[in-house]
Design a protein around this nucleic acid. Structure first.
Length: 137
DNA sequence: GCCAACGTTGGC
DNA sequence: GCCAACGTTGGC
């Protein structure tokens, strides 16, 4: 089982929208590096949901329930299906600021490549989240 | 709202 | 195929 992270602008699609839907087609992945990441999603993989804009923090965890494929409406764009596992309410939310402050993840795309929207998470990062008290199962 | 970093487009 | 100009994203 592999862990990924997917960003969303809460003004467009927030964790609250995901709570209402429970399962959603995660779309709009166009950036070549992000497409590379979504292509490697396998059923059962975990995807951390992250709010960009203002908040910049991890707000939930989802499971891949539908294989990634190109968007039939837009050749260059890829989609996958995600089912919500849980949300992280306010005290649990891990901010980018906190992640940066550890100094441990300077090579992680979340830190290194701020414009990337979908990425693989290094296992050490997931271990750190666990140690931080986050339920990532 | 600003700006850095990166992506994309189009003229040559 | 190069590169300048422009557009977009996301952190601050």
């Amino acid at each position: 089982m592999t862990y990924f992270l997917a960003k969303t602008d809460p003004d467009c699609y927030s964790i609250d929208d995901f709570v209402k839907e429970q399962e959603t087609v995660w779309d709009g992945i166009r950036n070549p590096a992000a497409v590379l990441a979504i292509k490697s999603w396998k059923i059962g993989d975990r995807v951390l949901i992250y709010h960009s804009q203002g908040q910049a923090c991890i707000v939930g965890l989802a499971e891949v329930t539908g294989a990634p494929h190109p968007d039939p409406k837009n050749e260059k764009s890829w989609v996958g299906t995600l089912k919500l596992i849980r949300t992280y309410p306010e005290p649990q939310r891990v901010t980018l600021r906190e992640i940066k402050a550890t100094g441990l993840f300077t090579d992680f795309a979340l830190v290194k490549q701020s414009r990337l929207s979908t990425m693989l998470c290094p296992p050490e990062f997931i271990d750190w989240l666990r140690a931080r008290g986050l339920d990532v199962s």
